[in-house]
Design a protein around this nucleic acid. Structure first.
Lengths: 214, 214
DNA sequence: ACCGAACCGTAACGTACGGTACGGCAAATG
DNA sequence: CATTTGCCGTACCGTACGTTACGGTTCGGT
């Protein structure tokens, strides 16, 4: 019974990607009420095919989450600019993009289902979301922070510590409130404002010109 | 069919509180896999009684969450001290208590189930957790911040804005990582350290002696 | 033209669980 | 003591859903 569900690194066919997109849409609309029947109907495929391709319901969910994760990649940060202005704009763009993704319906739906299944002993969706969420953000941002430090613009001892503070300044209570269903209005201009504020506060805490102690 | 589930302000009997404690324990252990049968067995009561007391499964979950929420109340903040030292220690104790609650198994379990049911159109557990979580923290902390401002120790325009920044500095990525199942080690001394760091950073951003602009 | 693989649509199966009904018992109530 | 009340234990019902099975169709290969 070694289906495509276990070899999750096998390239997806066009049809399979369409099926996963259907599952994704359904996940956003219905949340955890996602049923195999509804996915089959939405994707115009048979349940037998779903089971052949993804093994079981958990495999389908995992493949869906990974499929979405594979889409988000590629927001790379250029580290060619070493002056204060480009570092600032880099951090601001980072915070802005992050908040935009975070407050999107897809992200909220994915985090919801991952949190729901976090205690389970089956395939861990939480680890996938964690890996492609906060951890991915850390992997992309920490090099930028270190470049800023080497350029004498930032001062900190622990890079991860600095990143986590930036995370806190950017996200604050937005994510948990969204996950808990709080109706939240985050326009694009508000997001840009939040990004600017967070970046400014981060410089106030870790900028080399102020106080170097964390 | 107006049972105790609808009049949620009716005082609970000792037996009912025991039942809710059993449900709480089961929620921590099994998460959303909590079944009416398992609660009845754990609490040594009949399912019929559960339905008579709480209406339905959702009512039981709601009552359980509210029961836990009613326990946490009472961490009031004294605002009698107006000097820097007492404000600092007040903020530190606040952050410390908050992180301790946040990283506890019960809080994680409750937030998990609330997030899971957030999209539902039934009784909104998310609103309850939100009300007794971040919002309760805001209601308790914001007066303290304003007292600090009136004493000339803090400088900010928007109290809620200042609170949310404090929230971000304290919680950072801890809660979302816990909810997503990340194995996390947070000893008591680490929590106290986090609280001190967050408070210090908050003063660096909003202390009246540094820069008054947010 | 023929074959087999892949897949669609749907029906069917098994089970878990929410919700209900009922018999018995123990304590309060009179 | 008789009666009512409240609750336990358990059996039961209905349904939703994961999973499987199967007949029919399309399509690429030979």
């Amino acid at each position: 019974m070694q289906s495509a569900a276990e070899a999750n690194d096998s390239p997806l066919t066009e049809r399979q990607r369409d099926v996963l997109d259907a599952a994704l849409g359904l996940l956003v609309e219905a949340g955890d009420a996602l049923t195999m029947t509804s996915v089959a109907r939405r994707a115009s495929c048979s349940k037998e095919t779903l089971y052949k391709w993804f093994g079981d319901r958990d495999g389908l969910l995992t493949a869906t989450v990974q499929w979405q994760a594979s889409k988000v990649r590629g927001v790379t940060v250029r580290r060619d600019g070493l002056d204060l202005a480009s570092l600032t704009s880099g951090l601001e763009r980072f915070a802005s993009d992050w908040l935009r993704v975070l407050s999107g319906k897809i992200s909220v739906a994915l985090n919801r289902v991952a949190v729901s299944h976090a205690g389970s002993d089956k395939r861990d969706l939480g680890a996938i979301v964690l890996e492609n969420g906060p951890f991915a953000m850390a992997r992309r941002l920490m090099p930028l922070l270190e470049v800023g430090r080497e350029a004498g613009l930032l001062a900190f001892d622990d890079t991860e510590e600095a990143f986590r503070t930036f995370f806190g300044l950017v996200v604050r209570d937005v994510q948990i409130r969204l996950l808990l269903g709080d109706r939240f209005e985050l326009t694009d201009v508000a997001i840009d404002g939040e990004a600017r504020r967070a970046t400014q506060q981060f410089f106030a805490l870790y900028g080399a010109h102020t106080n170097g102690a964390a």
